[in-house]
Design a protein around this nucleic acid. Sequence first.
DNA 1: ACCGTTGTTTCATATTGTGGAACTCGACTC
DNA 2: GAGTCGAGTTCCACAATATGAAACAACGGT
Lengths: 255, 255
Amino acid sequence: MSANGTQAIDRAAQLLALVVQADEPISFTELADETGLARSTTSRLLAALERHHLLERDGNGAYISGPLFALYAARHDPWSQVARLAEPILEKIGAETGETVNLAVPRSHTVVHIAQVNATYVLGARDWLQVPVPPHCSALGKVLYAFGCLELPEGALEQLTSHSLATPAALRSEIATIRRRGYATAREELEIGLDAVAAPVHGRDGNVIAALGVSGPSARLRGQLDDVGRLLIEHGSALSQLLRRRSPKEGPAWG
Amino acid sequence: MSANGTQAIDRAAQLLALVVQADEPISFTELADETGLARSTTSRLLAALERHHLLERDGNGAYISGPLFALYAARHDPWSQVARLAEPILEKIGAETGETVNLAVPRSHTVVHIAQVNATYVLGARDWLQVPVPPHCSALGKVLYAFGCLELPEGALEQLTSHSLATPAALRSEIATIRRRGYATAREELEIGLDAVAAPVHGRDGNVIAALGVSGPSARLRGQLDDVGRLLIEHGSALSQLLRRRSPKEGPAWG
DNA sequence: ACCGTTGTTTCATATTGTGGAACTCGACTC
DNA sequence: GAGTCGAGTTCCACAATATGAAACAACGGT
């Protein structure tokens, strides 16, 4: 198990393994006892591990896994991987349209944005990353409704502006249109003055797993919703193909 | 940045950080160059890190994050956390009924089982963990349909046995029953001789995120489906409350 | 004010890690 | 098949580095 010239590392790794494998935070004393190391040594080693973000301490001074582990986990989350693969495509759409581009996925009856490229114009959408939005007011959300990623709501719909869809019936009728032409629009339905377009992205198994969309001021976007829609369908299927090739082994929790 | 008595650890941590933060595997030489360490030193340090499962090598000998990071990620996956919290409750249901108990979540138009406690009887269900199952043949799946976790299918349904639900209409009518009484049953619909019962589990935001169910031979279970159903509703809401208290910060990708 | 518990810093010591050089292994060339 | 290069590992004399006892600091209990 142990080799030459690495006593310090062996001991540090042992401490690290104890902390990471433990379900609960571990105290200094537990670690020192468990490893049988001198308290002074334990202290120095733990401080070094903490300095390098391999460990950190909770409010009570007990040790827990550090930010480097969190970073690893974030990097290996299936959605981040999709987001990273999508990044260059979003960039391209951003360059072609000048507007804010988003990639969104369904989560718990809402839509959340997992990747964004900002408008080249000064006037553009805010940073939507991780912010949940009512799907019926969002082009991205309507796409997810239309392709069966989100359960349709039943009661009256929340009216965020006077243009928001008000009833499930209106939503259903719009969904039919979206399915037919392949992209969704939202005209000042989330916020006055804000228009958006979106198209679906398919996962490895063919089901729709995400939506790709552009949003910007109605003043600029209103006239070209259809053109941008066609653009998004193209880029959306390009992204789908990319995912089909280079997606993580097996099917993760998509859809 | 650096302190006394930890040169070796500082250097090792530097190597580790480079590997973890990199998107791609990194070769020995890149690491030695990047850190400016002697090749002999680099070799010893990397070997130690690998020995302790902090790093590993891919097919080409390049370094990537090791199993300890994967373990961390698995531990912090929202569903594993749910599964771990649920474990004692499954045990209790297993003890009370003697049958196989499962916790299942929706994934990509199927149901997957994320936790299981086996029957105390010899005759019991196989290990279903991670195996996807057609939802319309499963009590767990029907619960997820009934509470809006899965999009209803449209075409004809796959007939796994002569008792399987055949049409979306039949499914919809059964869903109405399930919503009313709070639990779902499946009588030899997945496999001849196998009955099952299931009830919903709610996440922190109140939406249904999982289903809790019992399955076993029709010969034993058929007479007590309703009793077990009521039992599951109780335990299901106990689990829901547990999740409401002790679930990870913010809402993860549930539902 | 006293003690016990927990954690950090100091410092003399020799154990431990270091890096140059020698070595091994495989791939490529002629 | 001998010769050459590049990548990586092992050896070993040396001293720089990590070590642990003990002193110190910071609490909390009684």
